[in-house]
Design a binder for these strands. Sequence first.
DNA 1: CGGTCACTTGATCGTCTTCAATACCAGTGG
DNA 2: CCACTGGTATTGAAGACGATCAAGTGACCG
Lengths: 245, 245
Amino acid sequence: MNALPTRPLVLDPREAVEPCARCDARERSVCNAIPEADLRRLGEASSIGTAAPGTTFISEGEPASAFFNITRGAAKLYKLMPDGRRQITGFVGVGHFLGLAVSDTYAFSAEAIDPVRYCRFSRPKLRTLLDDFPAMEKRLLQLASNELVAAQEQMLLLGRKTARERVASFLLAQARLGLVCQMPRARFALPMTRGDIADYVGMTIETISRTLTKLRSDGLIDIPNANDIVILNRPAMERIAEGMN
Amino acid sequence: MNALPTRPLVLDPREAVEPCARCDARERSVCNAIPEADLRRLGEASSIGTAAPGTTFISEGEPASAFFNITRGAAKLYKLMPDGRRQITGFVGVGHFLGLAVSDTYAFSAEAIDPVRYCRFSRPKLRTLLDDFPAMEKRLLQLASNELVAAQEQMLLLGRKTARERVASFLLAQARLGLVCQMPRARFALPMTRGDIADYVGMTIETISRTLTKLRSDGLIDIPNANDIVILNRPAMERIAEGMN
DNA sequence: CGGTCACTTGATCGTCTTCAATACCAGTGG
DNA sequence: CCACTGGTATTGAAGACGATCAAGTGACCG
């Protein structure tokens, strides 16, 4: 399921010298708010880290000593209850900025799905960076605002949608993922397991599976294999997702 | 249910002259990021508006032409589905800043609960204000981050908690409302209806009512009248809210 | 007093969960 | 090559929790 990384996960010596100048995640992240001339400062404020698939690199409740900027791979964010119930609050990819909790401890955990690379900013270093580059703060506010809108959409899904509507909404959102002003894909891969999907849309694995097979037998989607989805009838799917049955 | 406003809703002539200098909501909002000397500019960038109880002053899907800063009263934010299903995404009070959707349309609706007063900033005016006062952008980012944390907590509630856990969590959150670094109240008023609570925690009016009476008969809370709550056994309530039954 | 509105309480129903069995697939080693 | 293993997904049957439908209560107000 986890595709091989397109570039090796070990550090490239050139990157140690001028890491940010060569970072292919820069345009997709907050870092594009920093002018080229100041990239050295950006690099000095952060350190590069990695997380293997299945590894937790942020733990809910621990001291929030740093912020993370994902530069490769994907991760899931989640909250746990003492008895093990889990709510995944989001899947994040390249360019995503983590740790914006203003409290002194992390409000969620983060676990790598693929091999993940990130830039780690200590709190004080990020603060001085933000003081010197207000444009970066602007970008962060944009990102946070977008996340807030997504969170509200997810609350509607969790609080008021049926199983069928949840799965349809989820699939359509996945089809749009990473695309900006572009036609969503008809076919796409689900990088996460059924269990992850279930904990994201607030249901059980079994109901996810049943709902998917029902959508297939209704001719709305195809499931060539467990990890791939083809949307056959997008208009109908969108109607379902919005509750227009 | 809606208490009389402590001050009349009509405009005070002095406020027209130096509205922000006399604003008693300033310390609780983003506006405290603007130095005293520049309050005139702040006042010129915004216009004061009001919304009577039950009035919708932001409508989901309409062009997001302005931002709002609540200076008096309380409101509920919600999203609707075509068939009328509603999810309340939050209750907001004095100092809350609304409209941070980066999209060109509002992502939610806002309806006044009490008589509401707000300062309205047009998009371009707020933008120049933020350009001139980076500290204000900092404050906005703080607020947005806090909201994001609250949204994640709410997702856990909506996706994974039982009816009893939801109501307990909701009541405890209400008891903490508006308090910073202070003991939560044992007794407090619920300004919203059972219907609002239901649409906030993703259940029906009937289940809210039943769950409340069950909590009362268990001796955990008292309900002197429909709008007031007394928490009799806070530790037990907190255990329930966290799922430690 | 009759009216409305919000809330409460009861009985029944349905959707999703739970429990359980089976299928599937990749990797490993005989 | 094939049996074995562990993880993941699918499918079935039974059960529970909350929703729905319906009736009743109480407060407020003209």
